[in-house]
Every structure is written in C-alpha cells, then in structure tokens.
Design a protein around this nucleic acid. Sequence first.
DNA 1: ATAAGGCCCTGACCGC
DNA 2: TGCGGTCAGGGCCTTA
Length: 270
Amino acid sequence: MPELPEVETYVRELRPQLAGKRIVQGHVHWPRIIAQPESAPFLELIRGRRFDSFDRRGKYILLGLDSGESLIIHLRMTGEIRVHPATVEADKHTHLLLDLESGERLHYRDPRKFGRVWLVTDPATVLGKLGPEPLSAGFTPAGFGERLAGRSASIKALLLDQTILAGVGNIYADEALFLAKIDPRRRGGTLSPAEVAALHEAVRAVLQAGIEGRGSSLQNYAPPGGAKGVFQEQHQVFRRTDQSCYRCGAPIRRVVLAQRSTHFCPECQT
DNA sequence: ATAAGGCCCTGACCGC
DNA sequence: TGCGGTCAGGGCCTTA
C-alpha cells in the first residue's frame, strides 16, 4: 500500500530509469485505468513524448513530459510500475504499456485495478484539493491545528483525509499516533495545542524515517529499483495486534476506525 | 460543511 | 484439492 514514503521512493527510482527517454507508442489493455482523457486521445497525446521531470505530490507520481503535460499516476493499493526490456511479456494484470525508444517498455500493472492514470495540462485539476505536503514548510502546527479544530471525526480518520494533509495512509497514521502517544479514537477537535504539535512532529518523523528506509514492503510491494523497502522492520504498532508494545509491553490492540484497521498501544496512547 | 457507509477489485487466507 | 466466504483498503461517491 504505497503511501508518501513509498511513492517518494518510486519517484526517486523511476527517474534514472526513465529520464530523457521517449515514448514511441502506448497500449491500453484496460481502459478504465486511464482516468483522463479517454484512452484514444491519451495514446495520441503521449506518442513521441519524452520524460522530462519527476515529482511527487501526496501519494501521486508526476511524470512531466516534454509537451508540458503531466502524466499523473496514483498506485492506490496494488499499482506497480516497472521498466523492462521489450522481450518481457505483459501479464494479465498489466493495464498500460508504453513502448520506449530505448527498446524498453514501461508496464503499469495493478491486480486490483484501483490505481488511475491522468494526462493533464494543469496538475492542479487532479491535485487541487490536497492539503499541505507534510515535509514542507507549508505544514505547520498552527495550520494543522486549524484544520482539526471543531472536527468530531477520530484523529485517525482525519490523518487519512488527504485534504487535511497529503500523503499519510493507514501505516504511517498508526505509527505517527503511537509516536505522539495519542489514542487514535480521540476526536480531532479535542487535541490540545501540545498534542497537535506532538502529532505534527510525529507525522514528519515517521514519514522521514519511512523515506530513509525506502518505504515499507508488505505483501508483494516493492519499489521499481528492485530492492524492497525496510521500514516495516521499524513498525511499532502496525499489524502487531496482540504483540507486546516495544515501549511498555502491553498487548497492541486493533480496532476499526473509518473502515480502516487501526493499531495502537492502549497504555502508551491516551 | 461534516460524517458515515458503499463501492470498486482480486489475491490471500480460512474453515470445512 | 476444492470451494465459498471474508478480509484488505485509497479515494470517490452518495446519503443523512
């Protein structure tokens, strides 16, 4: 489940694999994977274009083309991008193929078909509603507090809300709440300024540590460079139900909040 | 405006 | 071994 650290790792590893390479021709095997425009104009617009720039916003991958347009990709749960020699066959889960002038092919693969691809002139049409980047100067304790003020939803649900801040998913939300010692069931509006500040710092710390670990590799997830991420080895609570808290020894609890499994230490997080 | 639930999808896993 | 049922969950949509 790629979240901000996994997507950041993706962009960093795709850059050397794709920079300056030209798309000869694209092939769409499952049209709904292309969110915008329709797949026919999509294929026409990418033909002959070169990969120029590589960026991330929240959990979105932004591949800038030499036409000035942006190929935006969201991997959602099981999306996967690989650059293979042309001799590598597409499997049944490969929904988009881009033939490159280099003789390689970009494979977009996604067993659960949740991911989406956009080709747009202005990225803001896709990204416009996203909240601040957690690792940028635009994410401040004061601004975070304002966005949480008056909210009755659980703080866990609010951390997953991409309009409050961009890039946090289920893993890093649970880890950040543990680090900040905040019960995930707390209503967002009830956090004190000190707790908001602690959570702000914790979110930044876990995302930064996640990036340094090249993300969390759970199930089959791996970034495109081949080597798996290692941050899962540092998880304090995520998927550690009934195991001992590393800090106090109490068993980690699992509850469901906002339809998401949520893991926390009932002794440390209050 | 906010909150909550459904939906999309398929592989993995479980119990029988 | 086969099979039906359940679970996983990001973001969008609908409903209240």
